Computed example of a mutant assay.
Amino acid sequence: MNPPVAPGDPVGTPTCVRHPDRATGLRCTRCERPACPECLRDASVGYQCVDCVSEGRRTARRSRTFVGAEFSSRLVVTPVLIALNVLLFAVTAAQAGSVVSNERSPLFADFFLWPVGIYLGEWWRLVTSGFLHFGPAHLALNMIALYVLGRDLEPVFGKVRFLAVYLVSLLGGGVAVYLFGGVNTPVAGASGAVYGLMGAMLVAVLRLKLNPGSALGVIGLNLVLSFTLPGISLLGHLGGLVVGAAVTAGLVYAPPARRDVWQTGAVVGAFVLLVVMAFVRTGQLG
Rank of each mutant, 00 (worst) to 15 (best):
S54D: 15
R62A: 10
A60F: 02
V80L: 10
T65A: 06
E55G: 15
C49A: 02
F66S: 03
R57E: 15
V50I: 12
R74M: 08
T59K: 15
S54Q: 15
C52A: 09
C49R: 01
T65P: 05
C49S: 09
C49Y: 07
V76S: 11
S54F: 13
E55H: 15
S72F: 06
S54C: 04
C49Q: 06
V80K: 00
F71T: 04
G68C: 06
A69N: 02
T78N: 14
R58W: 13
F71V: 01
S63G: 01
G68P: 01
F66A: 09
S63R: 07
R62S: 13
E55F: 11
E55N: 15
C49D: 10
T59G: 14
A69T: 00
T59D: 13
A69Y: 00
C52S: 13
R74W: 04
T65M: 08
R64L: 13
G56Y: 06
T78F: 10
E55Q: 10
F66H: 10
L81M: 07
T59V: 15
F71N: 00
V53S: 01
R62E: 13
C49F: 04
G68R: 11
P79E: 04
V77R: 12
R64W: 02
G68A: 05
A69V: 04
V67L: 00
L81W: 06
V50Q: 14
V67S: 02
R57S: 13
L75D: 03
R57W: 10
D51V: 09
S72D: 10
R62I: 06
T78D: 14
V77K: 08
A60S: 10
L81H: 01
V80T: 06
T65E: 05
